[in-house]
Design a protein around this nucleic acid. Sequence first.
DNA 1: TGCATTGGTAACGATAATGTCACATTAATA
DNA 2: TATTAATGTGACATTATCGTTACCAATGCA
Lengths: 237, 237
Amino acid sequence: MSFQKVLIVDDEAPIREMIKLALELEGFTCLQAQSASEALPIIVDQRPDLVVLDWMMPDVSGLDFLRRLKRDDNTREIPVIMLTAKTEENSVVNGLDAGADDYISKPFRPRELISRIQAIMRRISKITGDGLLVVGELCLDMKGHCVFVDDQLVAMGPTEYNLLKFFMGHPDRAYSRAQLLDQVWGSNVYVEERTVDVHIRRLRKALKPAADGVDCGRFIQTVRGAGYRFSARLASL
Amino acid sequence: MSFQKVLIVDDEAPIREMIKLALELEGFTCLQAQSASEALPIIVDQRPDLVVLDWMMPDVSGLDFLRRLKRDDNTREIPVIMLTAKTEENSVVNGLDAGADDYISKPFRPRELISRIQAIMRRISKITGDGLLVVGELCLDMKGHCVFVDDQLVAMGPTEYNLLKFFMGHPDRAYSRAQLLDQVWGSNVYVEERTVDVHIRRLRKALKPAADGVDCGRFIQTVRGAGYRFSARLASL
DNA sequence: TGCATTGGTAACGATAATGTCACATTAATA
DNA sequence: TATTAATGTGACATTATCGTTACCAATGCA
């Protein structure tokens, strides 16, 4: 199980805590730093999967710090999201030029930050080097062509496997039955849309034993009138 | 149902069709008019999100028509893209002065038009790059097809979702029941106007749990005799 | 061939969503 | 205040959508 570590660099503790809280609810592990000088060793040692970087810091400017990170081979790969105030929005361009992956202007809704982070996570770390697709407690081994839930092997048919593979590669997004048929079955076959339902059912059943007790759409939610959506964790209840 | 409606005003049908085709591939809904006199009623009662306006029209000059739109309170906010021939390029300045948002000189590549349109849509609509519609404490995830209030997932039916999506895309403006039926239900279905009331009620109810205690039209205000208006701000009491 | 596995479909029950109504409540007006 | 119109609200029947099971065809394999 790979934890997704996020480093929050901001000099205001309340903001750090707010972000931390929101992210931890979504299953991220959070690290904190209140200045650039504090952040650097953490980045080097802990290698977070993502840095959320306030643009206004006491010691070094966000832009300078970002440039430094992107100059260093060791830290270049780590994606950065900028936090900018409304009045600093012109610096956004500089930030993006300097290698930031996204920006959010304060004040922002936690939901927005989370979505951005998830988008970036999705972009960068969908598939590990060894052909593993890991989302939450689900692990799909593309080489071995098998699926683990909480490190436990679960059996399923080829179609269910393909379906799950697609879902894990495209989480948190609703797909219509037609889209799923296109993506998983192929765009040139004709099968009834309801067939998707049946395979969703089979996939859910396959994932269920490991899903502790109640599965209630733990991984696959039905979006009534729209289709189905995969996500690793239940949206906040 | 897409809420990004574009009205194409041009006297040459092939050009209209070409633009229409390109835009529909990108998910826009298209309306057409071949003259200014035909365009005006469409603009008034369908309220497109954007008007693509040919500068050379049989009845009224593009400039005059544009001025008329910008004089009227009801149509002033609707952005306009001019289509100008190479030889008319000096009129671009006049057009921009009169309130046009952008221009494209013919001949143009469809791709270019779409890019410009999308740029304008992005500017005016509150849709972020990730398909998030964020207004105040409301967040509608178009990809995930779900809604958050204060970062808390709220459940609602498809119609309520569509209604809210429309409202969030067109805030601070009152819409009659007939207009809402057109925009949300579609212009070709017949349902009682009072049905809107019921769905407004259901939407309010869905948004209420998060609306601390008193919701009293926190998001959706009724405009007596006119219809309903969505706004994230508290109505001045 | 016989058997097991898988995939697609139909059918049926369960559930959610929808539109409409009746009635309550509120606002506007005289 | 009395009256009227507009809106809010809960309940209902109807319909649409979804979950689930059973079944049969196709496939692969021993």
